[in-house]
Design a protein around this nucleic acid. Sequence first.
DNA 1: TTTCTTGCAAAAGCTTTGCACACCG
DNA 2: CGGTGTGCAAAGCTTTTGCAAGAAA
Lengths: 151, 151
Amino acid sequence: MSETIQGLAVELKQTFLDYLASKGLKNTTQRMIILEVFLEQKSHLSTEELYLKVRGKNPKVGYATVHRTLKLFAECGIAAERHFGDGQGRFELVHGEDHHDHLVCTGCGLILEFENPQIEELQEDVARQHRFTIENHRLELYGLCPACASK
Amino acid sequence: MSETIQGLAVELKQTFLDYLASKGLKNTTQRMIILEVFLEQKSHLSTEELYLKVRGKNPKVGYATVHRTLKLFAECGIAAERHFGDGQGRFELVHGEDHHDHLVCTGCGLILEFENPQIEELQEDVARQHRFTIENHRLELYGLCPACASK
DNA sequence: TTTCTTGCAAAAGCTTTGCACACCG
DNA sequence: CGGTGTGCAAAGCTTTTGCAAGAAA
């Protein structure tokens, strides 16, 4: 378990490098730039947004490469693709084992993460009642953030 | 509160007609066909799927009309648009006031609905903690139903 | 060298829109 | 009639893909 942000970043980077090696894929300059920019982000970025940030560092990287690299991140488990209903896919960093859910502002698009063990437990109860074996879940709360609500 | 499926359908139909009237919109043959087909459905349909079913009844209805009518359904509250991760929007019937969530079997595709007021309350708590004004939420539990789990 | 990558541009897939004609009220 | 609705086709967006040139192993 890593305790620091840096530690996490190093760990995820290693995970990616291991994945590339295991698949006979290559470690390229572009992939490293994209990974670094991705690891710096706090929020859920669309491919377009990440692409723009990557170009800020190196204008020669193409959109398709960003797209394909994000898919690789998802494949090796360091990123997860999510859709929040605005027609754009977004990628978020997967930090370890913890599952988190989302608060999405329908005004400005802000996305906050939260965890609530009580809700998780109740979900287990529901699953038990229906004799389901839960593998996964997703919970999203849509509404207005304080700033948008006061407008 | 309606107790029967038929009663619900009649009620929703009326809601739609009232909505049309209140907005000065017109009650057309196409809109009625689309509404009827929509009300018959149990599952979450994409625009495309509904379009195909509507054409089964009346081949002269266009895709754009189905699309625009589904938007109307959403506006007047009898349908809700949902986006899963497959890049297609889907519409589901909204039955009354109650919000329901889903248990989805990843084995056979079975979808069960459930309601859990305790979870809803905890969601409110989370929202309050972040000073969000919740408009909507969605919760999906993915896993195996009893039948698939025992295979 | 051999294989994988990249960047461009084009293709694809779904949603939305402009317009002329048709229809409802 | 006047305004709304419809169907078609085209436009918009985002995501994917084909390919020739370039870079890693």
